[in-house]
Amino acid sequence: MRILKTNCIAVAALALAVAAPATAQTREVVIGTPGFTNIGGLEIISKGFEAETGIKVTLRNGGMDDVVKMALDGSVDAVFLPADLMDEATAKGAITTGTRKHIGRSYQGLAVMKGAKVPDISTKEKFIAALKSANKVLHSRCNGTPGGPGCTRTAYMLSSLFDLPEMAGVKHAPSPYGEGGDALARGEGDMAVQNISQILKWDNLVVAGPIPEEYGRYLDAVAAVPSKAAHQDLGKQFIAYATQPGTFSIWYSRGVDPRKGAQ
């Protein structure tokens, strides 16, 4: 019994000795992303990356300004941003040259309740007619300066849509829960405009289609590695994985079209 106990201790010690280096060598890549690319594909893509490489992925989600700060301070290994904000970060020297990659165009769209008639919004005229047929179209609330804490960039894009002259007569209201789809999912209206990737999180909502492109209600996403990132090689590896042809269907199914958008 004493010998057995000694052997057990030796085996346990060996296991710890073997396990310790493995734990120390565990690699992790940290990604900074706003919601439209996080829900728009990265939640799914990151799991595939982990499964294929064994490298842990931490998605650090935040507002667009938060992600710009991550790029500036190098607290993440890769960032996903709208193209114009990436331009600003690049101008400040925050992005490693040659690492910027095109992701695609993330559309805002029209949602209806599951089971309701899905309108044809394939043209501006049909889109306007659909909105005017509703008793209430819900959208994001925008309080204060656009881009500020009470009015995010996306919220302004959606709420300001109803300031256009052709939208006169559309019965609309801001969501008391932040985003239009959040209120529509609770049955508080007939339709909602919201980023398509955010609509898809609700099982009881259906995407009628993207807002006609002429209105410019979309965000062109790109990715890059911050110049101060601690693990630039891992950041590049993750971006290469996220932009490979095999991920097209993932992005597209979440309202992001890799065939379109700024480079």
Rank of each mutant, 00 (worst) to 15 (best):
L219D: 12
L234D: 09
Q232T: 13
V225C: 05
A223I: 04
H231I: 06
D233H: 14
Y241V: 09
F238E: 00
L219K: 13
T247R: 06
D233T: 12
W251M: 14
V222S: 03
S227D: 13
W251K: 09
Y252G: 00
Q232G: 07
S227Y: 04
P245Y: 10
T243Y: 06
D233V: 07
S253N: 08
Q237T: 10
S253C: 07
D233C: 03
I239C: 09
R254E: 15
K236R: 14
K236T: 13
Q237C: 05
I239E: 02
D220Q: 01
D233K: 14
W251T: 08
S253V: 09
D220K: 01
V222F: 06
D233Q: 11
S249E: 15
T247V: 08
A242N: 01
P226I: 03
P226G: 13
Y218R: 09
A242D: 01
W251R: 12
F238H: 00
A224V: 08
A230N: 11
V225M: 01
P226E: 13
Q237M: 15
W251S: 04
G235W: 14
I239T: 00
F238T: 05
A229W: 02
Q237A: 15
A242C: 15
I250A: 11
L219E: 10
P226V: 04
P245G: 13
Q244Y: 02
A230C: 03
V225Y: 05
L219V: 13
A242I: 10
Q237V: 00
L219T: 12
S253I: 07
I250Y: 10
A224K: 05
Q244I: 03
Y252S: 13
F248E: 14
K228D: 06
V225W: 05
A224H: 10
G246P: 03
L219M: 14
F238M: 04
L234V: 11
G235Q: 13
P226R: 10
G246A: 14
L234S: 11
T243A: 13
Y218N: 11
Y241I: 11
I250D: 01
A230L: 14
A221I: 05
F238V: 02
S249F: 11
L234R: 13
F248H: 08
F248K: 12
I239D: 01
Y241H: 14
G246C: 13
Y252T: 09
A223F: 03
K236G: 07
R254T: 01
Q232N: 06
V222T: 10
P245N: 06
S227C: 01
H231T: 05
D220Y: 08
Y218Q: 02
A240I: 04
A223K: 02
K236P: 04
R254I: 00
S253D: 06
S249R: 11
